[in-house]
Design a protein around this nucleic acid. Structure first.
Lengths: 267, 267
DNA sequence: GTGAAAAGTTGACGGATCGTCATTTTAGGT
DNA sequence: ACCTAAAATGACGATCCGTCAACTTTTCAC
């Protein structure tokens, strides 16, 4: 954290501590990204059963040995994909937190980002779900797990920041015996539950008549109203807020995906 | 469905349609239960990585061929375990719905049952999580998936029943544009999210200071308050309700587990 | 520029696990 | 006691995982 404040001389004499991005590591990271892109494509096309290390290697331009130089196991690939998802989510959260509105609207924007990501990238979201599974966690590399943990913490920072803001501006009050952590956890849990359950339950034929965005918005309204987060849904049109967020947010996502697309085509 | 109404003669001449529980099928089902018990034990002891079909076969008193006569794949074993969990949850829900109190307390009892199960049987709960994963769903037998679907529908029936009761007795009102399905889904999602996220996030070192039951109760209170479910948490001591439910419920669970234990030892 | 050391790449290989199937064993009926 | 159908067995082929010794490329000192 404080490394940035150290004299340059130290940084030069001890580059191993804060390694500067060499051209080599840059290329390595880029290729890792390509491999993950390919893995994702395989998942989309042939499902999770179709993802095989041999297949991933043969469809890519590297051999199996090199593949294992990037990922410690097949499960590590899944965790890497989930790390990728978390990084993208983090960006989306950064954008969302800039939404100009009161604190509850900003919180809504965070939920919106989470929801839109789960809807736009169902495969990645399933990776996120799978990566929380014991069978995957047991076989992932510690380094990757650490990355995951740090990213989740950063995401939570955004949640807690909005809650802090709300406490500061008086639109929200913390009851005695309740911690800010608790509320951010509950927010996280509700968002995860709604989005993670929707697709599988629909596949099973349950809740056929439900529309994802409506349910999502509604669930958030219930929770925020329960928290007493002003203005309550009875005194504000959050449907409209949601649409406004969509407008600002979806266009940003589009321009981003366009950028990603062109970058992908160049490669 | 209407087979039960057919004359006995037909049932005798076509027993395959509505198979009576023969001694053979009885024994088969009993052994399947033993196998699942063993699988669970392996999972507890050696994690999900340690569960192998060869190992399960060798540790049991049947061969691999017979094992595959029960389960179509390794993943099918996990789904079978999740089906088992759902059946036990169904029983717990049945008990919970008999709690004598107002409708919101009964709903709380359902959440309590769900939470207690996740806490008392973390391994089975992780099976429930894993079984919602694409890699497992893709490889499970259709028959088992159907069982799972039907059980989840039955569980949802209990949720919706309590909600219906609340609407009937006036303690809850459905806003325009909101369906009973939506509310039951949101309840399900919150409970799933809270319980499914708690263990993995704790393992990652997040939310170290949170106590599971408190958070659970608190999240339910927020949601129910948001729904306007009377009496609100400001006008009723749901902490005490939770404890009362625990008292009645945990003792029931204990006597049950005792029964199960003795039954297990007889077998 | 050159050569050697370091870093990176490769695909063949051993091992583990999966799922099947021909053969053997068991159970139920006459 | 014998026959037949269902069930159990474990050896087997196939698949996939992860490793490693040999080989290629890059780096760097001289």
């Amino acid at each position: 954290m404080t490394d940035a404040r150290l004299p340059a001389a130290i940084a030069v004499t001890a580059p191993a501590v804060a390694p500067m991005p060499t051209a080599r590591s840059k290329a390595r990271q880029q290729r890792e990204q390509q491999l993950l892109e390919l893995a994702q494509q395989i998942l989309r096309q042939d499902g999770f059963t179709g993802l095989t290390m041999d297949r991933l290697a043969s469809l890519s331009d590297v051999s199996k040995g090199t593949l294992y130089n990037h990922f410690s196991s097949k499960e590590d690939v899944l965790t890497a994909l989930s790390v990728d998802s978390l990084q993208r989510l983090l960006q989306l959260f950064q954008h969302a937190s800039t939404f100009s509105g009161h604190s509850r609207e900003r919180a809504l924007a965070l939920h919106h980002a989470y929801h839109k990501f789960s809807a736009a990238e169902p495969t990645l979201f399933l990776c996120l779900l799978s990566a929380a599974t014991p069978g995957v966690m047991e076989k992932s590399s510690p380094a990757r797990m650490l990355q995951r943990q740090q990213l989740e913490m950063q995401l939570l920072q955004y949640c807690q920041q909005v809650l802090s803001d709300a406490l500061a501006d008086g639109s929200l009050q913390l009851p005695v015996g309740v911690s800010l952590e608790q509320w951010s956890f509950i927010n996280w849990a509700l968002a995860f539950g709604c989005n993670a359950l929707f697709v599988p339950l629909r596949q099973l034929g349950l809740f056929a008549g439900l529309a994802a965005p409506q349910v999502n918005l509604h669930s958030i309204n219930l929770l925020f109203d329960g928290m007493g987060w002003l203005p309550l849904s009875s005194g504000w049109d959050y449907q409209q807020s949601w649409q406004q967020i969509s407008l600002k947010f979806d266009s940003a996502a589009n321009s981003e995906s366009t950028l990603a697309h062109s970058a992908q085509e160049q490669a």
